[in-house]
């Protein structure tokens, strides 16, 4: 698809959120994500980065501020087929759930279907396309619980791809996945972003990896503390290192 890098896909304005109504997990966050972006939302545990992602998906409602998806307020948003979501699975995944890879990916088509509509030839083609994109078509009849963590992640990406979405949100997608599998996984994300033009919004605590993968880094620690390129991020963290601030040591990588 033609990618217009100036077009806003997500606009978060002055967003504050609190689970208990007392302490804000997020405070006055403003952030715009453009079409074709590949953005990594980073921050330590408990920094509110997953909360920010959930607000952008309408899974939780902020006390203050607004979220717009494709220029429409999230409370009135209807075009959910434009959005793919890969939840954090490694933590709460029932490995005994009786469901095949094909059935999981077919779910991606359920949201946009009318209740009485049957599964069509087009749906089956969409599932085959998505499974081929992630290289999992040959495993379509296996139980999801019988796959490795990395393969399961690919299946969930395939599910997100079935509606040919414009943006995919991923929450800590490589938790519990070994390093070599991660390389393949990030190569797949690069392909989706560069070749198909899908906007990617990725939440991760792996800052070092993010600086090598994404186009923009958004640092969240209750508020948005930075929204810069990986190069700027690395330069800044080196500076603050010299200044003696408490910053996690980050090895230098060239973005290629």
């Amino acid at each position: 698809m033609p990618v217009d890098h100036t077009k806003n896909i997500i606009e978060v304005k002055g967003l504050s959120f609190s689970y208990d109504g007392i302490d804000n997990v997020l405070e006055d966050v403003t952030l715009a994500i453009h079409q074709g972006d590949y953005i990594g939302i980073v921050g330590p545990n408990g920094s509110g980065k997953t909360t920010l992602l959930k607000s952008m998906l309408g899974l939780i409602s902020p006390q203050k501020g607004t979220v717009e998806l494709f220029s429409s307020d999230i409370r009135n948003f209807k075009d959910w087929h434009k959005i793919g979501y890969v939840p954090q699975k490694a933590v709460n995944f029932d490995a005994n759930f009786p469901i095949s890879v094909h059935e999981v990916v077919m779910m991606g088509r359920y949201g946009s279907k009318k209740l009485f509509q049957r599964i069509s030839h087009e749906d089956k083609e969409a599932v085959e396309y998505a499974l081929n994109q992630v290289g999992m078509w040959e495993h379509k009849d296996k139980l999801i619980g019988d796959l490795s963590g990395g393969q399961q992640q690919r299946v969930f990406i395939a599910r997100a791809l079935t509606n040919h979405p414009e943006v995919i949100f991923l929450d800590e997608p490589t938790t519990g996945v070994d390093k070599k599998t991660q390389d393949g996984f990030y190569a797949l994300l690069q392909k989706l972003n560069k070749e198909i033009g899908i906007t990617l919004v990725l939440v991760s605590h792996d800052i070092e990896r993010m600086t090598r993968e994404v186009m923009h880094i958004a640092c969240v620690d209750k508020t948005l503390t930075c929204h810069i390129s990986p190069e700027e991020y690395l330069a800044e963290s080196e500076l603050s290192d010299i200044a003696g601030n408490k910053v996690k040591f980050i090895t230098h990588h060239h973005h290629n």
């Binding site: 469901i99 949201g111 599910r159």
Partner: peptide
């Protein structure tokens, strides 16, 4: 089926 397997993703798909 979708809600049983993955309630959050089902919600994001518009269900």
């Amino acid at each position: 089926v979708y809600v049983t397997f993955d309630e959050e993703a089902a919600k994001v798909s518009g269900i």
